[in-house]
Amino acid sequence: MIPIKNFARDAQIFKALADEKRLFILDFLKNGEKSACVLTDELGIAQSALSYHMKILCQSGLVSSRQEGKWKHYSLSDSGRSFALSRFIDLTAIEENSLTSCRCQPKSS
């Protein structure tokens, strides 16, 4: 029997990656930390929409934030990036013992 694993953190990461605006934000943050003001201007979205996307990105661990005055500043998280990459590799790695043939029996006609 296959042991049950907890994939909650993995789901947060891949949810964060499953949206075009969030991918744009990640791509934009590759060039360094940006304030919420800059991101709303670049994306052409309201502050509330940005907050929604940044909440998902921060919860996933891919982005970190810091408060400076009335604005939040966002940057890519090296540890979040490393964790996401390692999880993707682990989730898609073919295990040698799984290369055996299927144990399902074909239906007889």
Rank of each mutant, 00 (worst) to 15 (best):
M1W: 10
P3D: 13
I4S: 14
K5V: 14
N6E: 11
N6D: 15
F7Q: 07
F7L: 10
A8W: 09
A8P: 00
A11W: 03
I13D: 00
I13L: 04
A16C: 08
L17M: 15
L17C: 11
A18M: 04
A18I: 01
A18W: 01
D19A: 10
D19S: 11
E20S: 14
E20C: 07
K21F: 10
K21W: 04
R22V: 05
R22N: 06
F24L: 09
F24C: 02
F24H: 07
I25V: 12
L26G: 06
L26C: 09
L26M: 15
D27T: 15
F28A: 10
F28K: 06
K30W: 11
K30G: 06
G32S: 12
S35I: 01
S35Q: 01
A36P: 00
C37K: 11
V38F: 06
V38E: 06
T40C: 14
T40Q: 12
D41P: 04
G44D: 10
A46D: 12
A49Q: 15
L50T: 01
S51P: 03
S51E: 05
M54A: 03
M54Y: 00
K55C: 08
K55S: 13
I56D: 00
L57T: 05
C58S: 08
Q59F: 02
S60G: 14
G61R: 02
L62D: 00
L62C: 02
V63N: 00
S64A: 06
S65C: 06
R66K: 15
Q67F: 08
Q67T: 11
Q67H: 11
E68S: 13
E68M: 10
E68Q: 14
E68G: 05
G69K: 05
K70Y: 09
W71V: 09
W71D: 08
L76R: 14
S77T: 08
D78R: 13
G80F: 04
R81C: 09
R81Q: 09
S82K: 15
S82W: 08
A84L: 02
A84G: 03
A84Y: 01
A84M: 04
L85M: 15
L85H: 13
R87E: 01
F88K: 02
D90C: 03
D90M: 03
D90Q: 07
T92W: 07
T92L: 13
T92D: 05
I94K: 08
E95G: 08
E95V: 08
E96F: 12
S98M: 14
L99F: 09
L99G: 07
T100H: 13
T100K: 14
T100R: 11
T100M: 05
T100Y: 08
S101Q: 13
C102F: 12
C102P: 03
S108A: 06
S108Q: 08
S108H: 03
S109P: 11
S109M: 11
S109G: 08
S109H: 10
